[in-house]
């Protein structure tokens, strides 16, 4: 009896939840990719840039990492609106999540770049490569491979933290749950389902990334025993 009611309830709410899940995925994918592009730029700027560029990159990274994501989203959504820059919730979330992720990704990448022996850069330069060529063809490809484990953590982390966008009215998974629950007050059931959805997908994502990691593995190019225990900070 109770179970059949639960299934009915599940079937009722599932379409809405799947709508929300789509938004969650959209936020995750855009943020990880945009965050990656900005992150690479920041990391390179921080390491190879002149004093001013490097300083700006460090400042940006530290400010983002030193403040909560929620505050950043609020600043973009409510704060900028107050000076006339109005974003829709989803725009604000995409923007905020991307910037946030970029700072963390920049730090992983910096760690990886610095793990590559400096002799490689020297060797590339003695072959006649320019600095930019050496970075692009020797340093970055290795650094990116080394970053994969950290990057996979970041992906899962982002997937989970998109839920915060709910607090600026983005209708992603968590928000849909809230909408359903506020109608029937079955918070526990609906959020157990949501928890399960998150669990399943974090599991799937980490499986996929694990496979990818093995696939791109280069013998001897060890992942420095970094940060399996360090959370994204």
């Amino acid at each position: 009896m109770a179970t059949s009611m639960f299934f009915e309830f599940l079937l009722d709410s599932l379409p809405k939840l799947l709508d929300g899940l789509q938004v969650t995925f959209l936020l995750t994918i855009v943020a990880i990719l945009a965050g990656f592009l900005i992150g690479v730029t920041l990391a390179l700027g921080r390491i190879y840039g002149n004093k001013i560029i490097s300083g700006i990159c460090i400042g940006f990274i530290e400010v983002i990492r030193g403040t909560p994501l929620l505050v950043q989203l609020f600043i973009i959504y409510f704060g900028l609106a107050s000076i006339g820059l109005v974003f829709s919730p989803i725009q604000a979330a995409l923007f905020g999540l991307s910037l946030n992720s970029s700072a963390y990704q920049a730090e992983y990448l910096r760690g990886s770049i610095q793990a590559i022996p400096s002799g490689q850069m020297v060797a590339a330069r003695t072959l006649g490569m320019t600095k930019i060529q050496s970075i692009g063809t020797i340093v970055l490809p290795q650094a990116l491979r080394i970053s994969i484990p950290a990057w996979s953590n970041e992906l899962i982390y982002l997937f989970k933290y998109t839920s915060i966008a709910y607090l600026i009215q983005v209708r992603e998974l968590t928000a849909e749950g809230q909408i359903i629950a506020s109608r029937n007050f079955r918070y526990v059931e609906i959020y157990l389902i949501i928890a399960l959805i998150y669990l399943i997908f974090t599991f799937i994502i980490s499986e996929i990334v694990d496979r990818a990691e093995k696939r791109f593995h280069v013998p001897g190019l060890g992942v420095p025993k970094r940060a399996s225990w360090l959370r994204n900070t």
Partner: peptide, 22 residues
């Protein structure tokens, strides 16, 4: 570890708050 690393904090909050009440 697997479970609590897989669920967003906000969902955990809601489950604890309303779940315990229930």
């Amino acid at each position: 570890e697997k479970i609590f690393r897989g669920i967003p904090l906000i969902v955990i909050f809601i489950l604890v708050y309303f779940g315990l009440a229930q």
